[in-house]
Amino acid sequence: MIQTIAFYLFAVLVIASAVMVIMSRNPVHSVLWLILAFFNAAGLMVLVGAEFIAMLLVIVYVGAVAVLFLFVVMMLDIDFAELRAGFIKNFPLGIAIAAILLAELVLGIGAYRVGAIELGTPDGASAPLLDRSNIESIGALLYRDYIFLFEAAGIILLVAMVGAIVLTHRKGPADARGQQDIGKQNRRRPEEATVMKQPGIGKGVEL
């Protein structure tokens, strides 16, 4: 009973907040609704027993990606009038994309109703369910069965990251403002940073 209540609570909240993401006028509110949607999706995943995926969803999407979203959206100076003008301009394109998506959905569901395509059974599909936790099964899958694909994905991401850094990295002249030499800062001692002066009465100090 309590599972049913929890499921409907999470499901209704996911849908409601997803609607609010596109309905709310303030983009920051949109991002906050999006975060609520992520969070409730994580709740749904916990309900079906995928607690590891749920935690990853919260850590990666809510904890990192959405924060950056929020960061960017908060700093943007958004002109609402222009946004609405853009809405009118892009309206036909939006309708076209929506129609295509709808057609695909109808086709897909229709095809599914007719009967699934016979693709054959994957290897090991008949193997008994192991009494293992989520983490162990995912770990076994990623690091044993599909290790090369997993590593390849990792390398692609690494290359993308290095590329992004190379594209944005600018090295100015060595003594430019903003180029700090941390070692030099740490080596600095009071003897070279401050001077004690004992000016005589009525005399100025030359630094």
């Binding site: 935690m55 990853l56 919260v58 990192a64 924060v67």
Partner: peptide, 8 residues
């Protein structure tokens, strides 16, 4: 992981 998620 839960702790990590919540603290994020």
């Amino acid at each position: 992981l839960y702790i990590l998620a919540i603290s994020s």
